[in-house]
Simulated assay, not measured.
Amino acid sequence: MTYFDFHVHIDHYPNPIKLAKEYESYKIYALFVTNLPELFEKQYLSYQNFKYVRLALGYHPDLTDEFPLNHDLFDKMASRTSYIGEVGVDNSRGKASNLQKQLENFAFITQKKYNKDKIYSIHSRGAEDEILDLLIENDVKNAVFHWYTGKISTLERIVERKYMFSVNVNMLLSKKGINIIKKIPQELLLFETDGPFTRFENKVIRPAQIPILFKMFDDQFSNFTETAFKNFKRLLLLRELQSKLKT
């Protein structure tokens, strides 16, 4: 069985290259999300020879005040990857002072010049409806909601658009998380660790544990591993076809 991890912060581990090599040795596909265009640029060359690890161009909303989005650099780096993440909006406390700037940044990141041949890994905490409205407005084709925690009514709207969800073990271990996963159609489910920000058995998650985590999902949701990997392959194929249509 082939496994994958659709959202992991490799550069937040103590030895990122060592971790990437672990993904390679276990033959686990990994989407290495970044938090700034500057970090993507810094690490780009180091990860080009990996077969299973792919680098995503990101801009985390939590960094909005500290690091204004460099539009020119984002534009330059976007041509070097098929993946954009982690990006989005965070209004989890319902009173973000920079909410408008976050929305402007996300509108820029999802504009049509990028979104036709990119796959997005999206942070949407506390701003799920605003995120969805911008995705629809910009006609984004391939969006994956990372660690969704929002309303079921918004989830249903996301499902109508056939956007996907990457779920992790923290969700599996909470009643709210399980309820959300149950509401997602199987054909829209993907797997993530969000490592190192999730733990399993009181340890930061590493690639060796991923088959165990998939088994935990299989125990709760029939054929999760097989279905999620089929969804993953289908998502990549759709992106490839859209890229060819664009040219």
Rank of each mutant, 00 (worst) to 15 (best):
Met216Asp: 00
Glu192Val: 02
Pro211Glu: 01
Gln209Glu: 12
Asn168Phe: 01
Lys203His: 11
Val204Arg: 01
Ala208Cys: 12
Asn168Arg: 03
Ala228Phe: 05
Ile181Arg: 06
Phe217Thr: 05
Glu187Arg: 07
Ile210Met: 01
Lys233His: 11
Val169Trp: 03
Met216Val: 03
Ile212Cys: 04
Val167Gly: 06
Arg206Trp: 07
Val169Arg: 04
Phe214Gly: 05
Gly195Asp: 06
Phe229Trp: 15
Ile180His: 01
Val204Ser: 09
Phe191Glu: 05
Gln209Phe: 04
Ile158Asp: 10
Met164Tyr: 11
Phe165Gln: 02
Gln209Gly: 00
Ser174Asn: 07
Ile212His: 11
Phe221Gly: 00
Asp219Met: 05
Thr225Ser: 10
Phe200His: 08
Pro211Cys: 04
Phe214Arg: 00
Ile210Gly: 07
Lys215Pro: 06
Met216Ser: 10
Ile210Tyr: 02
Gly195Leu: 10
Lys215His: 06
Lys233Gly: 08
Glu160Ile: 09
Pro211Val: 07
Gln209Met: 12
Ser222Gln: 14
Ser166Cys: 09
Phe165Arg: 01
Lys183Val: 00
Arg234Ser: 14
Phe191Met: 00
Val204Thr: 13
Leu173Asn: 15
Pro207Arg: 00
Pro211Trp: 02
Asn223Gly: 03
Pro207Ile: 00
Arg234Met: 14
Ala208Thr: 09
Glu160Lys: 15
Arg199Met: 11
Lys175Phe: 09
Pro196Cys: 07
Phe221Thr: 07
Arg199Asn: 07
Phe232Ser: 04
Gly195Ala: 10
Asp194Ala: 07
Thr198His: 10
Ser222Arg: 14
Glu187His: 13
Arg234Phe: 11
Phe232Tyr: 14
Arg234Val: 04
Val169Ala: 06
Thr225Pro: 09
Lys182Arg: 14
Val159Gln: 05
Glu226Ile: 11
Ser174Met: 03
Asp194Ile: 00
Arg206Asp: 04
Asp219Cys: 08
Gln209Ser: 11
Leu235Ser: 04
Arg206Cys: 02
Ile210Leu: 01
Ile212Glu: 11
Phe165Asn: 08
Ile212Phe: 10
Arg206Tyr: 13
Leu189Met: 08
Ile184Gly: 04
Gln186Ala: 12
Phe232Ile: 02
Ile158Ser: 11
Asn223Glu: 13
Phe224Arg: 06
Phe229Tyr: 15
Phe165Val: 09
Met216Lys: 13
Val167His: 03
Ser222Phe: 13
Phe232Met: 05
Arg157Gly: 06
Ala208Tyr: 11
Leu189Asp: 04
Gln186Asp: 13
Leu235Glu: 11
Leu172Gln: 05
Asn168Asp: 00
Arg157Thr: 08
Arg206Lys: 14
Leu235Asn: 00
Lys175Asp: 15
Arg206His: 13
Gly177Phe: 07
Leu188Met: 12
Ile210Val: 03
Phe197Trp: 13
Glu201Met: 05
Phe232Trp: 14
Arg161Ile: 01
Ser222Trp: 11
Glu226Thr: 10
Asn179Ala: 15
Ala208Ile: 12
